[in-house]
Simulated assay, not measured.
Amino acid sequence: MKVTALGGCGAMGRATSRELAENDTVDELLIADADLDAATEFADELREDEYTGEITTERVDVTDHEALVATIEDGEVVANALPYAFNVDVMEACLEAGCHYLDLGGLYHKTQDQLELDAEFDEAGLTAVLGIGASPGLTNVATARGAQQLDSVEEIHIRTGAKGGGEGFAYSAKTILDELTMEPIVYEDGEFQTLDPLSGRETYEMPDPVGEVEGFHSIHSELATMPYAFEGVETVDFRVAFSPDLVNICDVLIGLNLTSEETVEFKGVETTPREFLDWHLDRQPKPGAVEEWKSFRVDVHGTEDGESAHYRYTVVVESRLEDWGLKATAVWTGVPMGVAAAAVGRGEALETGAKPPEEVLDPEAFIAELRKRDIAIEGQRIQP
């Protein structure tokens, strides 16, 4: 099996590439990136670890449709670790090239656009897994596992948190700003509601060593799929807890109107404050590989044998500094996509089409594979 890792030497893509390089069912890994020098240097690192599969590199411009198709068409699977703005473009290339597709999520609105390609992927006999990182991804699989224990699902509550990780933006500054500034969506009493950014602040407890964190509503892909995937569910909500320092920075940026999309003219050049901010932040150094713990908690409520029941699933993922040189953010985001890409390539997807993880991956089997990689999703029945 040949898998193409798009953006495979980026912050999240490195974990996906390492997972794929270690997988015995992947005969060839193509690391395709806009920065060929970085991809080549990373491929050399992987070869030094004596992985058995072939590792190749190629420069790719995902905005060039024909070139992208030519890059991926001799492979079976594309694992897309690029910023979510390119998701639909890559999916369209996969349809033309005849490749299965996976990504790390689309922040709700982009995911909705991607779901419109469901019929085309189904007709082509291909599977597109929409959002198989940590959240969305692991959270979806954990929710599906909880739903398997219940006769009916009524409520789903998703919480994430972290400890450590250094200063600044842990991954794409643009994506994080979108998460913090776009209007969140929640599903309550069977209806979608739009809320204010950074609203719904709540203190909650995560597994050790993360502990107590403060989270808030954020725009996320789980809300684009779970209300439809789990029949009868009445409530789905999501809260994320970033570091207080990062939230304070974003509060200031929002207060100064630097996240505005309104066009302004400065010294004869038309731009927007947000466009300049994205450009500037993208050029700032990213935090190095430091100790970090990432965690989520998923609570699934419903009925079992005619009575109310509540299942909780949690995970804590630690940085892999000694062997991979990657912090937990990359590990718990990139590894699941690598595991899923190999599974889809082996023909283990439950369905064809463009679908979320809760519909296309076997949760029990997937959780078992993750455990082999020290990503242990623990479940328990919460007594009333």
Rank of each mutant, 00 (worst) to 15 (best):
E261V: 13
M1W: 06
G338W: 09
I375T: 02
A376C: 06
G306C: 11
A309M: 08
A34M: 13
R373K: 14
E96Q: 10
M226T: 13
F86T: 11
E188S: 10
V247Y: 01
L117C: 03
T143G: 01
R346G: 08
V298W: 00
Q149R: 14
A81M: 05
T63K: 09
I254V: 15
G347L: 11
D64Q: 03
V78K: 03
T4Q: 06
L20W: 02
A349Y: 11
V316A: 06
G146H: 03
V339A: 04
Y313S: 13
W293Q: 03
Y51L: 09
S17E: 03
G211F: 02
H310A: 08
I249Y: 11
P209G: 09
F238P: 01
Y313I: 07
W324H: 05
L223G: 00
E183W: 03
V60R: 01
D74C: 04
D245Y: 00
T127Y: 11
L20D: 00
D44Y: 07
A354L: 11
G302A: 04
A330H: 01
V290T: 13
S218N: 04
D89Q: 14
V141N: 01
A134H: 12
I72G: 01
V141I: 15
G215Q: 07
P363A: 08
T25H: 10
R312K: 08
E41I: 09
D113G: 04
K2V: 14
K372G: 06
K2I: 14
G164M: 07
K267Y: 14
Q149S: 05
V90R: 02
V129S: 07
A241K: 06
V129T: 10
S152W: 07
D305M: 03
V3N: 00
A241P: 00
A79K: 02
